[in-house]
């Protein structure tokens, strides 16, 4: 983004007239129905309906998610499956040592993340929990928060909740963190003074230059981005978005992004877990 100056000048919004996002249905592998449209949850007052990012993509991209053979993300998942059973760390354990079959033990896990961890007294994202398992239970080194090992594992674990509704808690012990995330979502950042809501709530389905704006839902993350030829993690995408407002961005794994992830995930309550998705 090379434009500078006033907010209105910086964004070339092209109203498309008719609603550009389609009403295609997403069924993966012929049997996993992915809900890509749902009534907006009560706590999202700025939207009536929530849509998965899948609905805003060209059909050639949409088709790649209909079959795991076609989905380029699955290559990373295949690697993660091998890694699941690989011993790592001082305790001589692998993920499988405790969690056994990922297809059984991880069902429903992703759907409720980020969530409160009672013993640690904090909100945990999936990546934080994975690293906690690694360091505390396996005696292994923590993975880079948004590195390939982590996104592969996140994709593998998330897949076991595919098709299940996103159901992130927003009250109780997470309420303060959630409020913090909500505040961030509506705060304008950067030289371009854009908040998440500026694009993803007020202008979803419009175009910002050549990009078709989605609602910024993260039910499909980690996403295989064609641009990166690889899996991209939620915090990595937050970084990119904030950097695109020409602001100093927070880092992956930061408390700010954990709060934002909790909030943004909850905006998708009711959509299906779609990870790993394919995005431009």
């Amino acid at each position: 983004m090379k434009t500078t100056g006033l907010l209105t000048a910086a964004i070339a919004m092209v109203a498309t007239g008719a609603l550009a996002q389609d009403d295609h249905q997403l069924v993966t592998n012929g049997d996993i129905e992915i809900v890509t449209e749902a009534p907006a949850p009560d706590h999202v007052t700025g939207l009536r309906t929530i849509y998965s990012g899948w609905r805003f993509r060209e059909s050639s991209l949409q088709e790649m998610q209909m079959d795991d053979f076609e989905n380029p993300a699955i290559i990373a998942v295949d690697k993660a499956i091998v890694q699941w059973s690989m011993v790592d760390g001082a305790e001589g354990k692998s993920c499988a040592s405790c969690h056994e079959d990922v297809e059984q033990s991880m069902v429903g896990v992703r759907a409720v993340y980020p969530k409160w961890n009672e013993s640690a007294g904090e909100v945990r994202t999936l990546a934080m929990q994975i690293n906690d398992c690694r360091t505390e239970n396996m005696g292994a080194e923590a993975w880079k928060y948004d590195g390939e090992d982590m996104t592969g594992a996140e994709a593998l674990i998330s897949m076991q909740s595919r098709g299940m509704p996103v159901n992130v808690a927003i009250d109780g012990p997470v309420a303060d963190t959630w409020k913090q995330g909500e505040e961030m979502y509506y705060t304008r950042y950067g030289q371009l003074e854009l908040s998440c809501a500026s694009c993803h709530e007020e202008n979803y389905d419009n175009y910002i230059r050549a990009d078709h704006l989605s609602q910024g839902q993260i039910n499909g993350f980690p996403a295989f981005r064609l641009k990166n030829d690889g899996l991209v993690q939620t915090h990595n995408r937050f970084k990119g978005c904030i950097r695109d407002t020409r602001a100093e961005t927070y880092s992956s794994g930061s408390a700010e992004f954990v709060a934002l992830e909790l909030y943004v995930a909850s905006r998708g309550n009711g959509l299906s877990v779609e990870a790993p998705s394919v995005r431009p």
Partner: peptide
Amino acid sequence: APEIAENGNTVP
């Protein structure tokens, strides 16, 4: 081929 390819890396 698609009329519009959202990314040039992978065009079916």
